[in-house]
Measured scan of single mutants.
Amino acid sequence: MGFKLLSKLLVYLTASIMAIASPLAFSVDSSGEYPTVSEIPVGEVRLYQIADGVWSHIATQSFDGAVYPSNGLIVRDGDELLLIDTAWGAKNTAALLAEIEKQIGLPVTRAVSTHFHDDRVGGVDVLRAAGVATYASPSTRRLAEVEGNEIPTHSLEGLSSSGDAVRFGPVELFYPGAAHSTDNLIVYVPSASVLYGGCAIYELSRTSAGNVADADLAEWPTSIERIQQHYPEAQFVIPGHGLPGGLDLLKHTTNVVKAHTNRSVVE
C-alpha cells in the first residue's frame, strides 16, 4: 500500500471513529477524501466538511520552486461564519470567499490569524475590503508590521502568557507558548472536538522541520505538551499544512522538532 493511500485511509478511519463516538456532533463529509496538494491548482481553494458547521479550507501556493498546501478553518456561528487564517495570499483568499459563498452561503463576518507569517495573514486586506472584521493577538499584529505583512485590524486580548485561553464565538483560542513562531495560536472547536494546530503542528508525513527561522526550538516541545494537557479530548487535529489526523500529530511534531534540534547540535 502506497504512503499517500495509507495517509488518506488514516484520515478516513479517524473521521469514521469520530462519527461513531459522537453521532450528534459529527456529520463528516462523505463526498470524498481530504484534498491534497496535487489536486488543488494554485489560485483555487477546496472546502472539506469535518463536522456539522465545521470545515477546513485548503489552498496551495508556490514557494521556492515548489507547491505547498495550506489549511485553515471555518466555523459556523449562528447565521454567520468565523474564518481562521487566510488562504495564503490575496488571490487565494478572494477564491476562498467565493467558494464559501458557493458552498455554504453564509457571510464571513470575523477572521482570526493564528500567527504573523504570510500563509496566515496574506489576504487580510481582501477580507477587510469584503467587510470582514480581522483579528490577531497584539504580538501577531506587531510582528506582521515588522515583517511588512498585512496586519489584522483588531487585537485579541488575554493571550499574552503561555497557557492563556479565551473564548471567541464558537471557538476557544489558546496560546501554548512559542513553537513554530513566538505568537502562534491554537484554535479548538469544543462542539466538535476539532483542534486546529496551525503551523505549530505537523502532518504525519512530514519528517523535516522546514521553516524554523522564527521558531523557538527549545520551547516548542513544552508548548505541545500544554496543548495535549489542555485538549486531551480532541479527536480531529488539523495541521497548518497537509493531512489531518488525531492527537498523534502532536507527538510526531515533537519528535521531528527534537530530531532537528539534535542534528543542529551535532553539526
Rank of each mutant, 00 (worst) to 15 (best):
G65I: 15
S139L: 10
Q61N: 10
L6H: 10
E172Y: 06
S191R: 07
Y48K: 08
T134C: 11
K4N: 08
S62M: 15
I17Q: 05
A19S: 08
S62V: 09
T140R: 02
I50D: 02
G53D: 14
G246N: 06
A111L: 14
L204R: 09
E99D: 13
H260M: 14
I84N: 01
A178D: 08
V37A: 09
S181E: 01
F26M: 07
E219V: 08
L217D: 12
A21G: 10
A144E: 03
I58T: 08
R167K: 08
Q229C: 04
G78C: 06
K8M: 07
Y68D: 04
T86S: 14
V237E: 01
V108D: 01
P190L: 05
W220F: 14
A25T: 08
A19Q: 14
E225D: 15
Y188L: 02
L83Y: 01
A15D: 09
R76H: 11
A179E: 03
T134A: 07
H241W: 00
R142P: 02
T153C: 09
I74S: 03
D183E: 10
T114R: 00
S155A: 13
L81T: 07
L217K: 07
Y135R: 00
P239D: 00
Y231W: 13
N92Q: 14
F168K: 03
V28L: 08
P138T: 06
L127F: 05
L5T: 05
I227C: 01
K258G: 09
Q49I: 05
H241D: 01
K8Q: 06
T93S: 11
A133D: 14
I20R: 11
T153R: 13
Y175V: 04
I104S: 00
E44T: 12
G32V: 09
D248K: 10
E101L: 15
T182A: 08
G197S: 02
T253H: 00
A165V: 12
A179Q: 00
Y196E: 01
E80Y: 07
F236W: 13
D214F: 10
L81S: 04
V67E: 12
D119A: 03
V37D: 11
T222C: 05
V112I: 07
C199F: 01
P23C: 11
F168H: 03
S193Q: 05
A129D: 07
L143W: 14
G53P: 06
L13H: 13
P244N: 04
F3M: 06
T134M: 03
E80F: 06
S22E: 10
Y34R: 12
K102W: 15
G240R: 03
W88I: 00
E233D: 12
T36K: 12
R120Q: 03
P244V: 06
A200K: 02
H260E: 12
H115E: 00
Y68L: 13
N92R: 12
V126Q: 14
Y12N: 05
Y231E: 01
Y231T: 02
Q103D: 13
V256I: 10
Y202M: 07
V146P: 09
V112W: 03
G72V: 01
G43F: 11
V237K: 00
A98C: 05
D29K: 10
Y188C: 02
V126H: 07
Y12L: 07
V75N: 02
R120E: 04
L173K: 00
P107S: 13
L247Y: 06
I201D: 03
L9G: 07
Y135G: 01
E44R: 11
N211M: 14
P152H: 04
G169M: 02
L185K: 01
F174L: 13
I227Q: 02
P170H: 14
V67W: 13
L96Y: 00
A200Q: 04
V54W: 02
D248G: 08
P41S: 08
Y34K: 13
L73V: 08
G72Y: 03
A129W: 11
A59I: 13
T36W: 07
G43I: 03
H117Y: 01
R141T: 07
G240N: 03
G105S: 15
D216Y: 08
R128Q: 09
P244A: 06
L156K: 03
A165R: 11
A259D: 07
A144D: 04
R226P: 04
E101I: 12
P190K: 05
L13T: 14
S161I: 11
P170V: 09
P232D: 12
G2Y: 11
D119M: 01
P41T: 07
T140W: 02
A95R: 12
L6N: 08
P41C: 11
A87M: 00
L24K: 07
S56V: 12
D216S: 13
S113P: 04
S16Q: 05
S205A: 08
N255K: 15
S155Q: 06
L106V: 14
V108G: 02
S31R: 13
L249D: 00
I84A: 09
P35A: 09
A21P: 11
Y48R: 08
I17F: 05
Q229Y: 09
G177W: 01
Y196K: 00
G72E: 02
N184Q: 10
I151R: 10
L143D: 03
A179H: 01
E39K: 14
R206K: 09
R206I: 10
S62Q: 13
R167E: 06
L96R: 01
Q103Y: 10
L73I: 07
T254K: 08
T109L: 14
K8V: 09
V266F: 15
G53S: 10
W55E: 01
C199D: 03
R128D: 06
H241N: 00
V121G: 01
S223H: 00
G43N: 15
T134K: 01
S205T: 05
L159N: 01
V108M: 11
V11R: 05
Y68T: 14
T153Q: 15
G197K: 02
P41Y: 07
T182V: 07
V237W: 02
E233G: 12
A133E: 10
A215V: 06
A218K: 15
P190W: 05
Y68C: 05
I201L: 15
I151M: 09
D183L: 01
L249C: 01
T222W: 10
R226G: 07
A136K: 03
G32T: 05
L6M: 07
R120Y: 01
A130L: 14
G148A: 14
A130C: 07
L195I: 07
R141Q: 08
L82H: 04
I238S: 01
F116G: 05
A178L: 11
D164Q: 09
D214I: 09
V67G: 10
G65M: 14
A59H: 14
V37S: 09
L6G: 07
T60N: 10
P244Q: 06
S160D: 13
N255I: 08
R76C: 04
D119S: 00
Q61S: 14
K258S: 13
L5F: 05
K251W: 08
F168M: 15
V266M: 06
F236P: 03
E80A: 11
V42P: 09
P138V: 13
I238A: 01
H260K: 13
T153I: 15
L204T: 11
H252G: 04
L73D: 02
A59R: 03
I227F: 03
L156D: 01
V126W: 06
S162V: 09
Y34W: 07
D125P: 03
Q61E: 07
S113Y: 04
I74F: 03
L185Q: 01
D79L: 15
A179P: 02
Q229H: 13
S30T: 09
L250K: 01
S160T: 14
E267D: 15
T114P: 01
S70K: 02
G245P: 02
D79T: 14
N92W: 01
G2P: 10
Q61T: 09
T134D: 05
E39N: 08
D29W: 09
V266A: 13
